Amino acid sequence: MTKLQSIQIGRAVACVLVVFYHLLALSKDYAGSAFYEPAFSGFKAGVDIFFVISGVVMVITTYSRFDKDGTATRFFIHRVSRIYPPYWGLAGLLTLYWLRNPGAINAEHGGVDIVASWTLFPSDKLPIVPVAWTLTYELMFYLVFGLFLAFLAKRRLVGALIAWGAAILLAQPFAEALKSVPLASFLTSPFVLEFVGGCLIGLAIVRGTVRFPGPALLAGCAIFLAEFIVLQVLRAPDALDARLRVGLYAAPALLVVYGLIGLEKNGNWTTFPRWMVALGDASYSLYLVHILVFHALYRITFGPVFGASGSVFLPLAFVLSLVCSYLYFLVIERPVSTFVRLRLERLAGVDRPHANAAAPSQAPFGATRPQE
């Protein structure tokens, strides 16, 4: 399957939503909520869009090789090499800071589980890079889907996905009890339903059964807008239960991703701004780096330099996060991830697919590459 630029556009939009949320929400900590309104909590839906995209890309990048030897091994190698090297770069910096200031990171969330932070294994504490909680969910997705690749025939994939989704729904009455076992809690989280829905969209794409993408995209955007208005009118709290959050954002996220990719696949939308595709390429770095940039700017420059003036601070912080993130993508993420992937493939003796079988890569919030 050829590279789908619409996936990168979706990643760019989703990541910018999350960036805007953190930029505005951090004013609750540093500026007396000067820039925050309840509607802005809806920007968290960028993460839900990412989870849907993960499911889509996981299917379209593996479907043609589903029943072939080495597919599961290659899949795990690519996932490990895409997630960990860029993440460990930032985790290392924050670990050094944490060692000097143990109470300065995640104190309001029970502190730091350093082992879970470096492995991204499920924990009841946030990782040392706080936004990386989503990466733990990604790893859970990868684990189960990789097992599908290793032991499941392609013809049984739909049934397995539906069964997985049904198991998530059946587990919800026991959600509180499962919290005492982090691995079980993550595997049965409602967020998994967004990933499963994305996989089903991916199947529709590879089978050429995409219908009415335009109305789907419009409906998804309209639902998001209506939900943001409701959040504002009700002065809704920033933190929502996972089940409520998925109930609000899963359907429009699925519709938006389905519509966006469907328009490209059907030939209705074939030209995309290059800068948005580039932003989608660097979206994993942007996701990881932006929160650290914002914290630093709020702490160091907001009060003494900008005098609580958002008209200068907000656009400057946003642009600086883009610049830092793209540099991180060029200098760290892309070369290091590629180096690790090639070395792991060589160690595992995994053959690479032919160039004409290239497809978008699957990174949690990352770049699309041929042959990944």
Rank of each mutant, 00 (worst) to 15 (best):
R346H: 11
F195S: 03
L255R: 00
V350C: 08
A14T: 05
P215M: 05
G202I: 00
T188H: 06
R155F: 10
P370F: 01
I83P: 06
V57F: 04
A251E: 06
R100N: 10
S361I: 05
I229D: 05
C199P: 04
P335V: 06
W118P: 09
N356H: 15
A166R: 07
A278C: 10
F145Q: 10
R235Q: 15
A282P: 07
L94A: 01
L279S: 11
Y63I: 13
P182G: 02
V47G: 00
K44A: 10
R243V: 15
D351H: 02
I105P: 04
Y287S: 01
V233Y: 09
F151H: 13
L292E: 04
I201P: 01
A160R: 08
A184E: 06
K125I: 08
F306N: 14
L316A: 13
P127L: 04
I83H: 05
T136H: 05
L17K: 10
A204I: 09
L183D: 00
T136A: 14
A160P: 04
N268T: 02
I205T: 07
A242D: 11
F365G: 12
R334G: 01
V293S: 08
L90A: 04
V18S: 00
L292D: 02
L120H: 00
V80D: 07
T95M: 11
N106A: 14
A317S: 14
A358F: 02
D238I: 12
I229C: 13
P173L: 08
Y84F: 14
L314E: 04
I300V: 15
L178F: 15
P122T: 10
L240K: 11
I168A: 04
F35S: 11
G197D: 09
S325H: 03
A171F: 09
F313S: 08
R155A: 07
R334W: 02
S321D: 13
I83Q: 00
V323I: 15
V305I: 15
I83T: 02
L17T: 00
L240G: 11
G208L: 06
P85A: 11
S361D: 14
H354R: 12
L263M: 12
Q371M: 14
H354A: 13
L93N: 12
F191Y: 15
P315V: 08
Y287Q: 03
L17Q: 05
I205Y: 00
L161P: 07
V129D: 09
Y249C: 13
R82F: 01
G280S: 10
E108H: 08
I128N: 10
V18E: 05
I105D: 07
R11Q: 12
R65G: 03
L93F: 07
Y328R: 04
R74P: 02
P335I: 13
G366T: 11
F302C: 11
V47L: 10
Y284Q: 14
R299M: 07
V129F: 03
H22Y: 08
L139N: 07
A107N: 12
L147G: 13
A357I: 03
S81I: 01
R235M: 04
I223C: 13
Q5I: 04
Y63K: 00
